[in-house]
Design a protein around this nucleic acid. Sequence first.
DNA 1: TGACATATGTCAAACGTTTGACATATAATC
DNA 2: GATTATATGTCAAACGTTTGACATATGTCA
Lengths: 324, 324
Amino acid sequence: MATIHDVAERAGVSVTTVSRVLNNRGYISEKTRRKVYDTMAELNYQPNEIARSLLRKQSNLIGLIVPNVSHPFFGELTDAIEYYAYQQGCKLLLCNSQLDPLKERDYIEMMKRHRVDGIIMGSHTLEVEEYRNLNYPIVTIDRRIDSLPYVASDNYRGGELAAELLIGKGCRKIAHICGNLQLDMLSNLRTAAFEEKLRSAGIEFVTLQTEMNVFDQQEYEQLIAKLFDNHPDIDGVFATSDIIASFVMKRCRMLGKAIPQDIRIIGYDDVNAASWVTPAITTIKQPIEDMGRLAVELIRRQMEGEPFERENVLPVKLVERSTT
Amino acid sequence: MATIHDVAERAGVSVTTVSRVLNNRGYISEKTRRKVYDTMAELNYQPNEIARSLLRKQSNLIGLIVPNVSHPFFGELTDAIEYYAYQQGCKLLLCNSQLDPLKERDYIEMMKRHRVDGIIMGSHTLEVEEYRNLNYPIVTIDRRIDSLPYVASDNYRGGELAAELLIGKGCRKIAHICGNLQLDMLSNLRTAAFEEKLRSAGIEFVTLQTEMNVFDQQEYEQLIAKLFDNHPDIDGVFATSDIIASFVMKRCRMLGKAIPQDIRIIGYDDVNAASWVTPAITTIKQPIEDMGRLAVELIRRQMEGEPFERENVLPVKLVERSTT
DNA sequence: TGACATATGTCAAACGTTTGACATATAATC
DNA sequence: GATTATATGTCAAACGTTTGACATATGTCA
């Protein structure tokens, strides 16, 4: 690839002049400017960002670690993050941890080695201690770790909304399927709120936890099958993701339960897929795009030393469709 | 951040020695090695990959441009690509073109400026001319452009399989929904094969094209609604993605058509979502993971100057589920 | 005429690392 | 005692760019 020296030589000017054109500094005549641009086009010159980064001590890269981009929630979140990163001239370095702590640790180190401007963590499988000592511009999604800035939506309110809806519809025995409560995620608040509401309304419920916190079709299916074996009289389900909700629907169909007549189902996230399935899923909408935008913004602020909010909890919304 | 100089000074050795430890070259005593490692840990030293890249003229970055990671097919493909890139020590630079030619062009230039080791193009909205002059290690997904290496699955065979299945099930009037045939994509072969089979079997069919080639829920719904308005007697549908298939199912449910009794539906891709919906979608499986693996491998071979195959067409498979 | 703005050049340092050439010292081996 | 392997050091160049300091023109305006 051509370097700035090649351009200078070919254009018959000095390297400094080319740099001046490139960075719009100092005096440059229109004639020279044109000549330099022409030469760059001719040589197919692209300034080496690696050299620039080295000098500027800024890579214009944002690192993103998620369990898995092929999970709809993280796919849509990644989409948003990439969009806003691009808007401010940053590129996205994407890593799928697959919820493997070894991989996650390795990825964090990789990112530091590459001097990314900041890391957005959508996966958290390490010990709190490790994150604490990271000492790097960072934003956490859906998890509170000491004083690290985080972005989340109002999980507690989400749980309440789900409970209120199912209670309002007259459900008498409700199942709640959530992620692994051992993991210190903010999404656990959904469960807390939900259970509290049901308890105070005096409605019977059972809570099931999944093993891992990300998609495993087999596990979901077994869990749900067992749920209905043990509690055939369930008439309401609050699932912690739209994907899980769709598996519940699958099982109901199999068991001949009509939705929403015999059983009402509410999901979480409002990923696109929630409206692809039939009947379309009633769900609690997380403002995925806003979460992405905010995460990028928080990285930017940390980089530039601007003040920023540590706790960023965005509102959720009930989206009623056809499963309730 | 600590530099190699800081480590050297603190450990009481020369920079060269630290570099030797880091890169495992030359003679190093166990004692020194340990001391250096300890010091690195103490200072939280991470070698600056930017400086390394500059010297080595290798960034260990692979660029990926897709229309949109939140589309299930591209999400799963991205997942696979990231996985294999990591396996060979590369990181993934992810870009969503949103099928906007301006963005796509801009992204390609960004990637060149960042000196990525190669570009995997899952989005192709530019003129053939532009790709031709790219002059960079590149792999194209699902599109043939001159002599650029590409990865695809056997679209023609996929179209045949779909046709054979629907014919075999006794469908008499079949709709085919495909992407925009103006775009020179290899997926157009599905349509070609499908129509040919139907024609030679003497079966009536209608072909509908979507405007864009990526997800637009509104457009799909309108298109499908119109389809059934105009052709209420359709008893088979071949959709070019599982997502489109699920919208067809939605409409059928609304119209009171039983699946698969009144109408048989076959999708394409076999994304995870195909088995989330009820009934689970019969589909043509693209070997997404293999495609990802191969794409990364082709970049590697180009980088290292190893010989490689230009045309990489992987086999597809019929996965029969409950919509046929 | 002098002052100033404009336009370009030369030169060197800096970013953090690797690498080769070469020097020197100690220890082990014959 | 000579040779060799081991261990470390010094030094400088290279990767491609930016930037500041400084020099030197030419042109323009009082």
